[in-house]
Simulated assay, not measured.
Amino acid sequence: MNNDVKLIDYLRGRHSTPVAQIKGPGPETAELEEILTSAVRVPDHGKIAPWRLVVYRGDICASLGEAFLEIASAQNGEMTEAAKEAERVRFTRAPLIVGVISRAAPHAKIPEWEQVLSAGAVCLNLLMACEARGYVANWRTEWVAYDEKALKALGIKEGEKVAGFIHIGSSDFPTPDRPRPQLSDILTYA
C-alpha cells in the first residue's frame, strides 16, 4: 500500500483486479514470505491455526492445468478449444497463487465455524498485504476447489477445504468499481 494512502482510504476503495488483468512480476520468495507472515495475523480463537498455505508457482501451475483439463474432459465430454485452453491456463494466469486451506474440524473448545471464519480472514488479510506491498490480488475458488480429483491434484488432504486461491501479481489495468450494497439496505440497530 502506498505510504501516502491510509488504511481507511484503501478500505473505502478496495476492489479485486480481474485475474485476466494480473501479470508479472509477482513477489519473490522473501517478499512473499513477508506478505504471508502479515496475512496470517488474524483472529484465531485458541491459537490453533486452523488453516495452512500452499504456494503454487512455476512449472507446477502448468502441470495442474493439464490435470484440470483431463478432469474436466472426463466429466464434460467434448470441449471447445477455448474451454480446453481455459483449463490449461487456470493456474498460470497470475505469476503465483496462494491456496488458503481450511483445516477446520470439531474441537473441544473452539467452534468449527470460528475456525472457518479465521481462514476467510487469512484470505482477506492476504489481499490487503499484497496491496500494501504494491501487488494486486484476486480471491477465487472456481470448480477446482470443490472437485475431489482436482483437490487431490492440488495436494489438498482429506477433511480440508479450500478457503480461497489468491492470485497475486502486478497490473496497470484500471479496475472499475462494481455496485456495492447500500448500508441502509443491510444495517439495523437492535
Rank of each mutant, 00 (worst) to 15 (best):
M1I: 15
V5S: 11
V5W: 11
K6P: 13
L7D: 00
I8A: 13
I8P: 05
D9T: 08
D9H: 10
Y10V: 05
L11F: 15
L11K: 11
G13S: 15
R14C: 14
R14Y: 12
H15S: 13
S16C: 15
V19H: 04
A20V: 11
G24D: 05
E28S: 09
T29P: 04
T29M: 08
E31M: 09
L32A: 08
E33F: 10
E34K: 04
S38P: 06
A39M: 04
A39E: 02
V40K: 05
V42R: 05
V42W: 10
P43N: 10
P43I: 07
D44H: 02
D44I: 02
D44W: 02
D44F: 04
A49E: 10
P50H: 10
W51K: 01
R52A: 15
L53V: 08
V54S: 05
V55E: 07
V55D: 07
V55K: 03
Y56S: 03
Y56F: 09
Y56N: 01
Y56A: 02
R57Y: 06
G58W: 02
D59T: 01
I60T: 07
C61P: 03
S63I: 01
L64Y: 08
G65F: 06
G65A: 08
E66V: 08
F68T: 03
F68I: 07
L69E: 07
E70Q: 05
E70P: 02
A74Y: 13
N76K: 14
A82V: 12
K84A: 12
E85C: 09
R88L: 13
R88T: 08
V89F: 00
R90V: 09
R90Q: 09
R90P: 06
F91K: 01
T92Q: 00
A94V: 00
V98Q: 02
I101T: 04
S102A: 11
A105C: 10
H107G: 08
A108S: 03
K109F: 03
E112P: 08
Q115Y: 07
Q115S: 07
A121P: 00
A121M: 01
V122K: 09
C123F: 06
L124W: 14
L124E: 15
N125L: 06
N125S: 09
N125F: 04
L126C: 04
L127V: 04
A129K: 01
C130T: 01
R133A: 13
G134Y: 03
Y135A: 11
V136T: 01
V136N: 00
V136L: 01
A137V: 02
A137I: 07
N138S: 04
R140N: 07
R140V: 09
T141Y: 11
E142S: 15
A145D: 02
Y146K: 02
D147F: 06
A150H: 04
L151R: 09
L151T: 07
L154C: 14
I156V: 11
I156Y: 07
I156D: 08
K157F: 07
E160F: 03
V162G: 08
A163W: 00
G164T: 11
F165R: 01
I166A: 04
H167T: 00
I168S: 04
G169W: 00
S170H: 03
S171G: 03
S171P: 01
D172Y: 04
T175D: 15
T175K: 11
T175P: 13
P176M: 12
D177L: 15
D177C: 13
D177F: 14
D177S: 15
R178Q: 15
R178F: 15
R180N: 08
L183T: 11
S184E: 05
I186Q: 05
I186M: 06
L187E: 00
Y189L: 14
Y189V: 12
Y189K: 11
